[in-house]
Structure formats: structure tokens, C-alpha cells
């Protein structure tokens, strides 16, 4: 039986791990390669790096981090943040990433998804969607896609965008609820359910974990294929081992 994936995410800036509350107010701590190894030992099912480095000249540091991590961790590695072109994707895949997650660039240039999927295969193209509740009448699902790290409205419906990305060749959707992110109140179940009902690719739910029970909720109340969290793991609130034990106890099929 296919197991639900528990995915720790490391926000990386200039080669260092950071994690913010509600996308802003960043705190610094930790070496990403070392962190990755800890997660590897705890039995993470996959690892995610989100690069939030702003300056172009410092972006090569990330490639070095990816390369070093791939040498030490024998599990799938997804890398996202600032990917704009097929060339960016190629560089990351050749540095050791197994999948890349694309956000803003795909919104403004959707043909990038098709181009990338044709070239490297759908299996390595993840579309990251930052979703926020909206009252706009034209956005029927009630959720709007935000770009540029959650700072810009796009006037695009989350459900429409998820559907379109998969049709263009995305192999997975990484769905972050901006309303839940950093709140520690649990995954956005309603949003996750809406998206998993729309697409038939795997969907990773992200944003909002604060308690162990939130993982069980995410696993049992939605059809998400994976659950992603950052701060709870990064600040050691609980380990991946503890999450898996909790899920197992609640009858969820996990890899132990």
C-alpha cells in the first residue's frame, strides 16, 4: 500500500535555513545540509528546500547546498524558489534535485510547465500554489492564487489553476494555505479537499501544523498524498519519528 509522505521543508536563504511566521519576519538558524541529514535519520519520506534568496548572484550557493545534500541523503529531494526557466530546472536537476517546484513563473508563463514536463518528465515538475481565502465573486472556489511568495494577488481561482497546471503536465501540486501558514491551527482541510477532488495527481498539503493531531487530520480528512511542515520540525517541537508513530497509532499507513 502507498504510504502517506511526511515531508519536512527547509526555507533556505543565502545557504542558511530560515523559517518565517506568515511568510514574513524571518529568523535565522542552521545549516541546511546538517538539518537534512537529521531528517534523513528520522525517516523523512522526502525533503523539500525552498530557496528564498533574493539576489541573483547568491543563488549558486543553493546549488552547492543541493549537491552536498544529495551526496548524504538517499531520499527524494524537491527544490523550489525563484525558478524561472527550463535552464534553471536543468541546473537544479543536475545538481541533485529529484523534483523542482515552480510557483510564480508558472503563473505568468504557464507554457513553462509544458516545456519542462516534455523535457524532463512530469514526475519532476511540481507546481507550488499559495492559496488564500477570498470574497471575490469571480473566484468560485473561494480561494485565490497568490504569487511572489504570497505577496501578490493574481485574480486566479485556485481550482482552475490546479486543473490547468496538471493539464499542462505538472506531476504534483504543492498546496500551501496562506491563511493557515504559521498559525499552528492545522491544515486547511476544506482547501485540500477541494484540490484533491479536482486533480488526479498527488497533492501535498502544507501550512498550519502545530500539533501532532494536525497530521492525523490531514491524513484522514483529506486525500492528500503528503503532508509538509517546516517550523514544527525545524524548532524540534516534535520529530518525524513521533509524527509517524502518531499516524500509525491512528490507523494511517506510514513507512516506519
Amino acid at each position: 500500500m502507498l504510504k502517506i509522505r511526511i515531508i519536512p521543508c527547509l526555507d533556505v536563504k543565502d545557504g542558511r535555513v530560515v523559517k518565517g511566521i506568515n511568510f514574513f519576519d524571518l529568523k535565522d538558524a542552521g545549516d541546511p545540509v546538517e538539518q537534512a541529514q537529521i531528517y534523513d535519520e528520522q525517516g523523512a519520506d522526502e525533503l523539500c528546500f525552498l530557496d528564498i534568496t533574493a539576489s541573483l548572484e547568491k543563488r549558486d550557493i543553493l546549488l552547492d547546498v543541493v549537491n552536498k545534500t544529495a551526496k548524504k541523503c538517499f531520499m527524494p529531494l524537491t527544490v523550489g524558489g525563484g525558478i524561472k526557466s527550463v535552464k534553471d530546472i536543468k541546473t537544479l536537476l543536475y545538481s541533485g534535485a529529484d523534483k523542482v517546484s515552480i510557483n510564480s513563473a508558472a503563473i505568468y508563463k504557464p507554457e513553462l510547465i509544458k516545456e519542462a514536463a516534455d523535457r524532463f518528465g512530469s514526475q519532476c515538475i511540481v507546481i507550488a500554489i499559495d492559496a488564500k481565502k477570498t470574497a471575490k465573486k469571480n473566484l468560485k472556489s473561494g480561494y485565490e492564487v497568490f504569487s511572489h511568495g504570497g505577496t501578490k494577488e493574481t485574480n486566479i481561482d485556485v481550482i482552475e489553476w490546479a486543473k490547468k497546471s496538471v493539464n499542462l503536465g505538472a506531476g504534483e501540486i504543492l498546496l500551501t494555505s496562506m491563511d493557515s501558514d504559521g498559525t499552528k491551527k492545522g491544515f486547511n482541510i476544506d482547501l485540500t479537499k477541494k484540490v484533491t477532488a479536482t486533480v488526479n495527481t498527488p497533492v501535498i498539503a502544507s501550512g498550519g501544523v502545530g500539533e501532532l493531531k494536525h497530521f492525523t487530520e490531514g491524513a484522514t480528512e483529506t486525500n492528500a498524498s503528503g503532508l509538509l511542515a517546516a517550523s514544527v520540525f525545524h524548532y524540534g517541537k516534535f520529530s518525524i519519528t513521533e509524527v509517524k508513530r502518531e499516524l500509525h497509532k491512528n490507523g494511517v499507513s506510514v513507512r516506519i
Partner: peptide, 11 residues
């Protein structure tokens, strides 16, 4: 609920 790709850990 069979999603494609078959992605993840399976026994």
C-alpha cells in the same frame, strides 16, 4: 483515489 504518477513509498 489512484493518483498518477504513482509517487511515494510502497511495499
Amino acid at each position: 483515489n489512484i493518483r498518477v504518477p504513482h509517487m511515494g513509498w510502497n511495499n
